[in-house]
Nucleic acid binder design. Structure first.
Lengths: 336, 336
DNA sequence: GGCGTTTTTGCAACCGATTGCATAAATTAC
DNA sequence: GTAATTTATGCAATCGGTTGCAAAAACGCC
């Protein structure tokens, strides 16, 4: 009913018998304003449920206090980034909210880079969090050229300067492999994501380190790669079983591929984990509910999200470039 | 290197030798501007990669062209809304993008309603899409009081006027049940979400209709309710097996609960689908990859998202209240 | 060529905040 | 009691667009 009559700081100013500037300063807790005046203005604002106008403030301050979460457009296919992205978004959202930033979501076409200009040059967002699983480099390049602030989930290219948060992939690969070795497995396979991805190379490195330390040889017949999709996981598993029928364990680079791999193993008439043990990666929510429940490497996803948010904001405010890697841990369930 | 020198319409105006107003009108394709002038201004804008300033435009036009997607804060537990929410967000995003609206994501505390004011009265968003699975009514009430435009996923309260998109739950319940009847199942159970939810009541109604039409009695010993979480699905299943050991099929109100129920069934030593057939609901991506693959009711989630976006925008622009329900279909896999 | 239209363009106010600088009020110093 | 500070407030410009209204330019017609 009662159409709100006090919508702007000018309204408050009139009520308080002061000027707009004073109200603005009071609400921003400027030391220039006397305590009494501040108190009066604040209580007026509270009383009238005053909410400051965001576009005006943004125009005036030349910043949007909004961060874009950039992810690929969803396609039919079920890819890692989907579930993983959702879980990480929760962490990002809370990290941003605590610093009073808003979260905008952009679904981009993998081949298009116009989006960067459209969001940055228009002042709609102050920075980006890149989660595009594929073609990340193209987007990184676009953002660097624009000189736009951003942070990525993943390992940064060697010579470039930008923020990143990533899991400790070497340790992840090592933990998974060591667990399988401890369980007495002899022929341990590796199913990776695309071999050009640094994360995948690191996980492979961890796998090889663990084997070497146990005095084992690296057997390339035990190594296969997929593209993180579940079908590719099943296919890689089949190829592996073909090449190395004596395999008794496999470390798979994602929970989704691992779950598909377990199906493939069963279809060939083997049991998980008795005949072939399986370790996944990510500890997505579904890992606990797969059949059998998946032993996997947990990345602390809420933490990752929070760090992506905070470190990007830190960069916006101070220009400090951070590259952090978060710890991983082994979660033992039934599959290995 | 070259710091962009043409950032505002005033810059373009200078280059074109016209006034700001003319540039503004030309870029907005106003009929007031001559074709030649328009062409010149447009090509200048393109040439200099001009991007209009969003906050200024929003301030001036008194609208943000941004819609908030409101969902609950994520908790440890894995609930329906999570996966479902992610999938629907893709559809919303594309629906909004095609009308040039931005998508903001807000994770709200279930008991807090301040968020509405904080986003609406500040002019940060023009409207809301409500996906909070629990306590939806509280949030609806808050938005109605604020007189803020919104649309919900779900069935609207009888007497209230607001937009909604929902699945056809009655038909969904009916399709699932009819399928089980056709397969020759005799004792068909029902595991619903919370019984106070209208969606759940509709699915139950569809279930009962189908049974009645087949000349069967409704047996309340075959009906149980959970809260959509997977643990509650497993528990409801156990209770059902206890009460009605002769049960040979069950229609479960969500894929997540259905998958948990299948585990429970196996733990009791029964086979799916031979001993007990299971039909789920939602057709989330995981349904195709469960063990066995889940027969389920598909809601066209991308369409739902698109309609949520478009109908809300329609409402913003014309004030037309829409309440649509989208068709569902039965997807037959291995579990029933 | 002059006058009435119609089509184009520009002026200036406005959207609602922030902020540098000037000024008024209150304190302190002597 | 007055000058010198210190503290608190207000004025007015600014951020970068949009838009109502007035004015100029182009056009049609006799």
């Amino acid at each position: 009913m009662t159409k709100k009559s006090v919508r702007t700081i000018a309204d408050i100013a009139r009520l308080a018998g002061v000027s707009k500037s004073t109200v603005s300063r009071a609400l921003n807790d400027s030391p220039l304003i006397g305590e009494e005046t501040k108190a009066k203005i604040r209580s007026l604002a509270r009383e009238h449920n005053f909410q400051i106008n965001a576009p005006a403030r943004r125009l005036s301050m030349q910043q949007s206090r909004t961060i874009a979460f950039v992810t690929h457009a969803y396609h039919k296919d079920f890819s890692v980034a989907d579930l993983f992205g959702l879980e990480i978004m929760g962490g990002i959202s809370s990290g941003l909210a605590s610093r009073e930033y808003d979260l905008l979501v952009i679904h981009v076409d993998p081949n298009d880079t116009k989006w960067a200009r459209q969001y940055y040059d228009t002042g709609r967002v102050d920075g980006f969090i890149l989660m595009t699983s594929t073609r990340k480099q193209i987007h990184v390049k676009a953002l660097l050229e624009l000189d736009a602030p951003f942070i990525i989930w993943g390992v940064p290219q060697p010579k470039q300067k930008y923020c990143s948060v990533t899991g400790d992939n070497i340790t992840g690969g090592r933990l998974a492999t060591e667990h399988l070795i401890r369980s007495g497995k002899q022929r341990i396979g590796f199913i990776g994501g695309p071999s050009f991805e640094i994360e995948v190379q690191h996980r492979l490195a961890g796998y090889e380190e663990a084997l070497n330390e146990a005095g084992r040889e690296i057997d390339h017949a035990l190594i296969e790669h997929g593209d993180f999709s579940n079908t590719s996981g099943a296919e890689a598993m089949s190829r592996l079983l073909q090449k190395s029928p004596d395999l008794d364990a496999v470390f798979v680079n994602s929970d989704l591929m691992a779950i598909a791999a377990m199906d493939a193993i069963r279809e060939e008439g083997h049991q998980v984990p008795e005949d072939i043990a399986v370790v996944g990666y990510d500890d997505l929510s579904i890992a606990a509910h797969s059949n059998p429940p998946l032993t996997t490497i947990r990345q602390n996803i809420p933490l990752a999200g929070k760090l992506l948010a905070q470190n990007l904001i830190e960069y916006l405010q101070t220009g400090m470039v951070t590259n952090v890697s978060i710890p991983v841990e082994l979660i033992v369930r039934k599959s290995a």
